[in-house]
Amino acid sequence: MKELDLAVFFSVFHEMLGPVLWLLLALAVGGIALALWVFVREGSSIDSRRLVRSELMGLLGGVAALVLMAEVTVSGFTDAGGPVDWLLVGLIWGIGLAGTTILAYGIQGVFKKA
């Protein structure tokens, strides 16, 4: 057997999430690709107003990630008992924030009025 840690890592997440894993991966890759495409199309510049809008949505995305986590684990960040727990809360919120921001920026860029 290949003791390839990344393969084990992937296997566990696949087992955990099933088809949702592919959806999340597609969203992550698609979102980044979209944002990059918009960035390049607009002459390698960032639209600051759009970015702020995306970041605001990102804030909500972070909250959504925490709510989802609470749902899945039948618990929540109020159960945090030590520094590593707050780190985890921050990490989950951060993933939700970053993911939503990038995706929102990309989507808005695609649908912007020419």
């Binding site: 566990v12 087992e15 955990m16 986590m69 899945v72 684990t73 960040f77 008992g81 590593v84």
Partner: peptide
């Protein structure tokens, strides 16, 4: 230490593992 992260592991990650 009584930690949430350990609970998260128990409820989310151990069965897939």
């Amino acid at each position: 230490e009584e930690l949430w992260i350990t609970w998260v592991m128990k409820t989310m990650a151990l069965k897939p593992t």
